[in-house]
Computed example of a mutant assay.
Amino acid sequence: MPGAARPRGRASQPPGNPAERPPAPPPQDQSLLTNITFLKVLLWLVLLGLFVQLEFGLAYFVLSLFYWMYVGTRGPEEKTEGEKSAYSVFNPGCEAIQGTLTAEQLERELHLRPLQGR
């Protein structure tokens, strides 16, 4: 029938046997109290308030920044096999990673660009 409406529920399901589809990942508990990152931030804020009361808030903040920079860096043992460094001098053959602006590319773009407004 041309005017009959089709049920919409079946159109959104992927074709195939349900037994062939991979199982859905188990639901993760996202409550704020079990989130370790939230607890760390809360502890940091409480300590910041304490150090502000002791008039050492700025020192606590600056030392925290240094700690976050130290923790955020990876050592050479954490590098995966075949991973290239962002600094081409540390790669075999000084090979640059994709997206790096080289001096040759910059010269080529500066010299070949027509002057605007003339």
Rank of each mutant, 00 (worst) to 15 (best):
K79V: 14
G3R: 00
E104A: 15
P26R: 14
C94W: 05
G72W: 01
S12W: 05
L39V: 08
Y60R: 05
V71E: 11
R10A: 12
A24S: 09
I97K: 13
S64Y: 02
V41F: 12
R113A: 13
A11K: 11
L39T: 09
V62E: 02
L50A: 12
R6P: 04
T34S: 12
M1C: 13
A4N: 07
A24E: 02
P25T: 04
Q98T: 12
T37A: 15
P26T: 12
Q98L: 13
K79N: 10
R21W: 15
Q98P: 01
K84W: 10
P26V: 09
P15L: 07
F51G: 00
Q53V: 14
R74I: 01
N35S: 11
L33G: 05
A5Q: 05
R74N: 08
K79T: 15
L43W: 14
P22M: 11
L101Q: 14
P26E: 15
Q105T: 14
F51S: 06
L63Y: 02
Q13G: 04
A5Y: 04
T102D: 04
N17E: 12
V71L: 12
E107T: 06
V52A: 11
S64A: 07
Q98N: 03
L58A: 12
E55A: 09
V71N: 08
Q30T: 12
F51R: 05
A59H: 11
A24V: 02
E78W: 09
E20M: 07
L32K: 07
E20N: 03
S64C: 05
L63W: 03
G57K: 04
A5V: 09
L54A: 15
E104F: 10
N91V: 02
L63G: 05
F66Y: 02
L47K: 15
L110C: 10
G57F: 02
P23I: 10
Y70C: 08
P92I: 04
Y60P: 01
P23D: 08
E20T: 02
P22E: 11
Q13I: 14
